[in-house]
């Protein structure tokens, strides 16, 4: 167990194993997202209440799921980095943050656009949208804090602490915002919570969610590899890798 953790922590080992894993996740992501998109856009029936604007759910919900999951993943990586000093965990956390912020933005944008046909306005202080907005600020805080330090080690540790503090607060923020919303808007209905969605509606949603998760894993692997090269550029194994032309052409790896 310990040997495994430390092996996983070795950037060299991670660089090798991620090269093997990466194509599978890219393929799965592409397959799932294309299938889910076609199904969700063209084949799923229109909603009886919202009509076709309901199809925004297939990007809004996966993005919102991912936005929350990435923050948790980032905090877990931070914890692993702080406890076991595993540098790869911090590199992963560093590359996750911008993607998490991007996903939060997607969730916010699609929610706002969805609001126009549903509520007749671009922005409602809806519970989900409000928590998403706060989550975006949390992401921006982590990214800004990491960028503010000149020493990389301090930046990593500070970002890890903030991610952990944030992840403890996310459920508290979520529940308090939900509570606040039900207090102030008792009669209106939220975008996505509805009784008993038929199978042909939620199955593409599940596919899209899985596809987004695969995309997240694939992109994180890829960018962590870049981060390894950046931080370990002076290490012997990287220079050997480059000298021996073992480094593959990126175009092949990205597929």
């Amino acid at each position: 167990m310990w040997a495994f953790i430390h092996k996983l922590g070795s950037p060299k080992w991670f660089y090798g194993i991620s090269a093997k894993l990466q194509p599978w996740f890219w393929a799965a992501a592409a397959l799932l997202i294309v299938t889910g998109s076609l199904w969700g856009l063209a084949f799923a029936p229109a909603d009886y209440q919202q009509g076709n604007s309901f199809r925004i759910i297939y990007v809004h919900v996966p993005a919102a799921f991912l936005a929350q999951s990435i923050f948790i993943a980032m905090a877990v990586s931070g914890l692993v980095f702080m406890v076991w000093k595993i540098k790869v965990a911090d590199m992963a956390a560093a590359v996750m943050a911008p993607l998490g912020a991007a996903m939060t933005f997607v969730a916010l944008f699609s929610g706002a656009v969805w609001g126009v046909p549903t509520w007749g306005t671009w922005w409602m202080w809806d519970a989900r949208l409000t928590s998403m907005l706060i989550l975006l600020f949390l992401y921006l805080g982590v990214i800004a804090l990491r960028g503010a330090f000149t020493s990389r080690d301090s930046a990593s540790r500070a970002a890890s602490v903030l991610a952990m503090v944030g992840v403890i607060n996310i459920p508290i923020i979520k529940y308090s915002v939900d509570w606040w919303y039900t207090l102030h808007q008792p009669a209106s209905f939220t975008l996505t919570s509805r009784p008993a969605m038929p199978t042909e509606m939620w199955l593409p949603l599940v596919i899209m969610v899985l596809g987004f998760y695969c995309f997240f894993i694939a992109l994180t692997l890829m960018r962590t590899r870049s981060e390894i090269l950046r931080r370990e550029a002076n290490k012997h194994w990287v220079q050997e890798l480059v000298a021996g032309q073992v480094v593959k052409v990126p175009a092949e790896e990205a597929r």
Binding site: L41, G51, N52, R55, I56, V59, H60, V106, S110, P117
Partner: peptide, 13 residues
């Protein structure tokens, strides 16, 4: 009739 909303949300994503 919901084209602008659906396609802009999907497009941005």
């Amino acid at each position: 009739g919901h084209a602008p909303y659906v396609w802009s949300a999907w497009g941005v994503t």
